[in-house]
Design a protein around this nucleic acid. Structure first.
Length: 895
DNA sequence: GCAAGGTC
């Protein structure tokens, strides 16, 4: 209040207060004096509020009025308006620009002039952001021109509440010219670049290709289009890849996730499957914990637009239009806000109380008031000007002018009530299964308290149940190798696009929807439902930039602009410095474009021709099902600068997978062993060699897992422990059959077949899947199998053979009869283990170290981690795009 | 006829 002490001797002073918009002027007047008077002005929306107020010791007559955003607008003088008369380069760097009060704002200028004459003090209540600071200077310039004596003050407020406004009056400051200059710089750069590039593009392309619309360039609209085109190209160029995984379903039908996730190499998965195949699993961990689903953050404009688009299927542009109408009719707070936390001074209880008689959520609001209220979460964004969007007056469905308006009001109010509610609570159970050396997990969720979810249908929390198991339980499982295909990226939704723009600083909360609208008006993009796709014009434009090596469609130019604006705002650089630097850079680009104009016409023409049927073909309702655009692919292919380079790249990428089997030509897979050496394995022939050894046929035969050609009548397949043949044998104890290794007693490997097999005979037929010998099997009468005779592949790991109930067990176990009982639990507990290599199924006296298992899951050194094996799961190859190795999760948990 | 940023 000290600022007004000097005026005391003059008695009552008159103070002109100016806000950025009529609503703020009204709110401040209401907050400071309920008994204010209202006078009309020449501008119908901008009233003049009058009231008396004591500024400290000083009696003041307060005049409170408003503008509507900027008063001034930058423009080129009339002589530059003829496009074909001026070189765009002159428009960009030489033409002068004037900053003038536009015709439609003339009444506001008149108001300010008239009021300023009659006041001795001016308090600027513009929004507390860069643009607000610039508008403050526009206002003070008008006022000072009329009344040079007027004393200027800047009020900083973070919410229009009594506490905040009072505090602002007690801490009046001077407007910040640096902030304002940063806006002037942005305005000039945007106009110069926008006008010059738009003129250049339009004049060059319009006539040549008979285009009716303007081919505009803007530093926000074109990066927006860039995002849309980028997604379309990702979809069009996507090549599906097959992946494999082990499916584990337990006795209750519950399906578990394999800890390794999906793997892109079938044989790797088959090997892992072969190694872990069994019908039992041990429950190694059951964890139950309380979890919460967080209620939403208070609603900012960006989130509001995304929600409206996603959940109500109302476009961001339309949603903002409806929100502004609701705001103007007094139903909701100001809808253009970056803020996602409520100021501490706002009375949330009162806002809830306004809703307690609502026919739909009145009861819920009452419960909040009485007992369930919970302080909203505080986001990390604050524009210091507006609170999050919230209802300010109750509206029932019948009050709404349209269904969409009702939907929007519901969304805002339900969101607000959800913010004031408690988080939802639930109980999450995680079951971990160990199946030999593979682990699987399953998570289940039970919601215990819905809380905010009761009022908030825009969020989901789905429940899923899991069986009740205890640690140590042995359960029956069914393992299968399953496969799937990677899917292309989904078409870009408007909500996603808003998120991308927000993240990259393209546009502001108040303009993002406008840029999305602009690219549609310019015929660069088209929206169907919530999906936004580029048109052929948009594609051709962006592709031309790309092919010619320009990055005009990328977001970094805007980011650089933002960085430079900050430098001016902080006073580190002068406005003219950054304008000149930016214009100089853009002049270079424009000159290059001008020099390459024939190439631009040629490239643009090629794309338009290649895409001539694109817009028509693009007319499907379900874009997800659309096949990749061949025209675009072909054109992209044609424009790939060096085909050779591409091939070299591919070769480089395949470098690690280039070694091929000398016998069958199949690509080899690398397997890291416990002793650190690397085996190159042919997954077709089941042959392996040490990597360091030269690749020749004789060496390659040194270690063989299995051979496909069996000439001896007794041969079946090779032992995966010692590589000698396995032979059908009959157990003397149980009268059942098993495959025994010819290397016995040095090798005790054995594969036991189900008791129900009463006879088994080798045939000359081969399995279509794994090329192993097939066996004719006969089953006893008490077998549960309906078919009593089957031709089967019994090679461990081949899914054909797994339809039977064979069991793989060490001969050692059988001989000592420790575990040859029907109690399957016994097998697991008493499995023999080699002390030398820790492998199962053989003892150390026959261990040859490198055949412990076919895949060794061990830590790799840094170099290997980079290119060869996944460091988490040890598997050569890749996990699906965008996903990390799921083994990481398991490892982390176990730590 | 051109930009982007305020605003009704």
């Amino acid at each position: 209040m000290n600022k007004f002490k000097t005026a005391i001797k003059f008695g009552k002073i008159r103070v002109l207060n100016v806000a950025e918009k009529p609503s703020v002027a009204r709110s401040i007047a209401t907050v400071l004096a309920r008994d204010h008077t209202i006078e009309e002005t020449k501008s119908p929306y901008n009233k003049l509020f009058k009231f008396n107020f004591k500024l400290g010791e000083q009696d003041a007559e307060m005049w409170m009025t408003s503008v509507t955003g900027h008063l001034k607008n930058l423009k080129y003088p009339k002589q530059y308006q003829k496009w074909d008369k001026w070189d765009p380069l002159i428009i960009l760097k030489d033409a002068e620009i004037e900053n003038v009060i536009s015709y439609e704002k003339r009444f506001l200028e008149e108001n300010l002039q008239r009021f300023a004459k009659q006041c001795s003090q001016l308090i600027l209540w513009l929004d507390c952001d860069r643009e607000g600071e610039n508008i403050a200077f526009e206002v003070l310039e008008v006022c000072k021109a009329t009344n040079p004596q007027i004393k200027v003050h800047r009020a900083h407020f973070s919410a229009v509440t009594y506490v905040d406004i009072k505090k602002a009056l007690e801490n009046l400051q001077q407007p910040d010219e640096n902030l304002s200059n940063s806006v002037l710089a942005r305005q000039e750069i945007d106009l110069r670049i926008g006008a010059s590039f738009t003129r250049f593009q339009t004049l060059l392309l319009q006539q040549q290709f008979n285009l009716s619309s303007i081919v505009s360039y803007g530093p926000c609209q074109i990066p927006t289009l860039g995002f849309v085109v980028q997604r379309q190209k990702e979809i069009d160029s996507f090549v599906k890849e097959k992946f494999w995984f082990i499916q584990c379903v337990d006795q209750t039908g519950c399906e578990y996730n394999w800890s390794r996730g999906n793997i892109f190499d079938e044989m790797i998965v088959l090997l892992l499957f072969e190694r872990c195949f069994t019908e039992q699993a041990q429950v190694t961990d059951v964890q139950q914990k309380e979890v919460q689903k967080w209620k939403p953050y208070p609603l900012s404009t960006i989130e509001f637009e995304k929600l409206a688009s996603r959940k109500l299927k109302v476009s961001a542009h339309k949603a903002m239009d409806l929100a502004e109408k609701l705001y103007n009719r007094g139903y909701i707070s100001y809808p253009r806000t970056e803020t996602n936390k409520f100021p501490p001074t706002i009375n949330l209880q009162n806002i809830i109380r306004d809703q307690i008689n609502h026919p739909v959520w009145g009861q819920y609001a009452q419960n909040l008031i009485h007992s369930n209220f919970d302080q909203p979460r505080a986001g990390n964004k604050d524009d210091k000007a507006h609170p999050p969007i919230h209802p300010v007056k109750m509206m029932s469905e019948s009050d709404a002018q349209t269904t969409q308006e009702w939907d929007i009001y519901q969304l805002i109010t339900r969101h607000f009530l959800a913010c004031c509610s408690k988080n939802a609570k639930g109980s999450e159970t995680t079951i971990n299964l160990q199946v030999k050396e593979e682990s699987f997990y399953k998570q289940g969720l039970i919601i215990t308290e819905k809380n905010f979810l009761e009022i908030y249908p825009y969020d989901e929390w789905s429940q899923s149940s899991v069986p009740k198991y205890n640690i140590g339980d042995i359960i029956q499982i069914n393992l299968k190798v399953q496969n799937g295909k990677t899917s292309p990226p989904k078409p870009l939704t408007e909500a996603e696009l808003i998120g991308m723009m927000d993240k990259n600083g393209i546009g502001t909360d108040a303009t993002i929807h406008e840029h999305i609208n602009t690219i549609q008006e310019r015929d660069y993009a088209i929206k169907k439902g919530q999906i936004i796709k580029p048109t052929k014009l948009g594609l051709a434009l962006v592709e031309s930039y790309e092919v010619l090596g320009f990055t005009l469609h990328k977001p970094h130019l805007r980011a650089l602009m933002e960085q430079r604006m900050n430098e001016v705002a902080q006073g580190v650089k002068q406005k003219n410095e950054i304008v000149e630097a930016t214009i100089k850079e853009m002049s270079g680009i424009l000159q290059e474009l001008q020099q390459k104009k024939n190439l631009i016409i040629q490239t643009f023409g090629q794309y338009l021709e290649a895409l001539k049927d694109y817009d028509e073909n693009n007319d499907d309702e379900n874009p997800q099902n659309r096949e990749p655009n061949q025209q675009l692919q072909q054109q992209q292919q044609r424009n790939k600068p060096t085909k050779k380079e591409q091939q070299q790249q591919q070769q480089q990428q395949q470098q690690n997978f280039q070694q091929k089997c000398n016998t069958c030509g199949t690509q080899l897979v690398e397997i890291k062993q416990t002793n650190g050496s690397i085996l190159e394995v042919c997954l077709q022939c089941r042959q392996a060699q040490e990597k360091s050894q030269p690749t020749n046929t004789s060496n390659f035969q040194t270690k063989t897992f299995k051979t496909q050609t069996n000439h001896n009548n007794e041969e079946t397949f090779k032992c995966n422990q010692c590589h000698k043949q396995m032979k059908i044998r009959q157990s003397k104890i149980k009268n059942s059959y098993f495959f025994g290794c010819l290397g016995y007693p040095q090798c005790n490997q054995a594969i036991f077949l189900p008791d129900s097999i009463k006879s088994i005979q080798r045939t000359e037929k081969k399995c279509k899947k794994c090329n192993s010998i097939l066996f004719q099997t006969e089953y006893s009468e008490n077998s549960t199998l309906q078919q009593k005779s089957q031709l089967l592949c019994l090679f461990p790991g081949c899914s054909e053979g797994l339809k039977t109930e064979w069991r793989n067990q060490s001969k050692e176990s059988q001989q000592t009869n420790l575990n040859y009982s029907k109690t399957k639990q016994g097998y697991i507990k008493q499995q023999v283990q080699c002390k030398k290599c820790n492998g199962f199924g053989h003892l150390e006296d026959v261990c040859n170290n490198n055949t412990k298992t076919m895949i060794s899951l061990i830590e790799t050194n840094q170099e290997d981690k980079k290119d060869k094996l996944c460091p988490s799961c040890g598997v050569t190859g890749r996990h699906p795009k965008g996903s990390t190795c799921p083994m990481k999760r398991v490892k982390k948990k176990n730590q």
